[in-house]
């Protein structure tokens, strides 16, 4: 018995053993904050595909692509604002207003579709500028500023239409929704382009880095010579522009300007951003996470519909997903912090 003991090679934990390549990959993945969302998306995709043949079919994927364009573009936009430490509650109402305005310009004012879209996007940008001015110059809290628009823009959409959808939108307009690029619907392609643009801006330009700095510590950013007001202004303009873009895509998808669309979408967009790891206190989170946060919501929504789960339960599931996302993020960051302390 004692001989067996001495035969064992002496273990020297002090000596660092070269980590095998596989383990290094695992530790790197574990250090990637977005890994949880991405893994969940993959797992759920496999589960739903196994549960229903039609889930992974081309036509269902394209339908999901349309939904993804709506929520995903909004989530990207609102992420800019959240990164600066603000919030944008106006998204859903701005979607409705721009949907209605683009339809009105095209069908009633008989502007050609490209012009109608351009004017609509200008309107959206103007709303963003207004938010920026309120927040930076007048010091109105972002919550209140965008709450005003949440109410007022919805009202404007209803006033313009008197509550009825505007029809007679031109074919060029609806074509936006009909075309496919390599089987990918145009709106989905637009979402992908938006993701790439947002990634380039946030990770590869100095203005993007400054946006993070403003959200991380506004006073420090200001004293380091960053024009904080411009960065905040930019975030609100991007957010409103994204809402305008989604408004245009909705009118194209429905072929009418529908004043009731977009109710509560701001919350879905914020949820996607938070699930994707955007910190509500500002200054942290990445585009990859937001994209997969939006994909996750769409996968869950569509999957539950295909499995014939009642819409009431879908809301509960979404709530649970949000809860899980937030808690795992907390636990993960705490573990990382502890691991870092243990290895000085």
């Amino acid at each position: 018995m004692t001989a067996a003991h001495t035969d064992r090679p002496a273990v020297t934990p002090e000596e660092p053993v070269a980590e095998p390549a596989g383990r290094r990959l695992v530790t790197r993945l574990a250090a990637t904050p977005e890994i949880g969302v991405i893994a969940t998306v993959i797992v759920l995709f496999i589960v739903f595909s196994a549960a229903s043949e039609s889930f992974a079919g081309v036509s269902n994927l394209q339908t999901m692509g349309f939904d993804l364009a709506q929520y995903g573009i909004l989530a990207l936009g609102v992420s800019f604002v959240i990164l600066t430490g603000g919030i944008d509650l106006s998204l859903g109402s701005v979607v409705a207003l721009t949907a209605v305005v683009s339809a009105w310009l095209n069908a009633r004012a008989e502007l050609p579709a490209p012009a109608a879209i351009a004017v609509t996007l200008l309107l959206a940008a103007a709303i963003g500028v207004l938010h920026g001015v309120f927040v930076t110059r007048l010091g109105v809290p972002p919550f209140v500023t965008t709450l005003i628009t949440l109410v007022a823009a919805r009202g404007a959409a209803l006033a313009i239409t008197k509550g009825f959808p505007i029809d007679g939108v031109s074919e060029t307009f609806t074509d936006l929704n009909a075309y496919r690029v390599l089987l990918i619907p145009v709106p989905t392609a637009i979402f992908i382009v938006c993701c790439v643009a947002a990634w380039v801006f946030l990770e590869r330009t100095y203005a993007g880095r400054q946006l993070y700095a403003v959200g991380g510590n506004r006073e420090a950013a200001r004293l380091a010579g960053i024009r904080t007001e411009r960065r905040i202004m930019l975030a609100y303009v991007v957010s409103a522009l994204c809402a305008g873009l989604v408004g245009v895509l909705i009118t194209s998808r429905l072929s009418v300007g529908q004043p009731g669309v977009g109710q509560g979408w701001e919350l879905t967009a914020i949820a996607a951003a938070v699930i994707g790891g955007i910190s509500l206190s500002g200054g942290a989170g990445r585009v990859v996470g937001v994209a997969f946060g939006a994909i996750l919501l769409v996968v869950i929504n569509t999957g539950l519909v295909i499995l014939h789960v009642s819409p009431y339960y879908q809301q509960i599931v979404l709530g649970l997903v949000l809860a899980v996302a937030v808690t795992t993020d907390r636990i993960r960051s705490r573990r990382l912090a502890r691991a870092r302390r243990a290895t000085p």
């Binding site: 100095y206 880095r209 510590n217 006073e219 420090a220 004293l223 380091a224 200054g283």
Partner: peptide
């Protein structure tokens, strides 16, 4: 802590904060 640093961000981010445009 309140006026100069991004505490949760890296040394790299903090040290390059004032010269970002010239690094571009």
């Amino acid at each position: 802590k309140h006026q100069a640093l991004l505490l949760d961000d890296s040394v790299r981010w903090n040290v390059s904060l004032a010269v970002l445009p010239t690094l571009s």
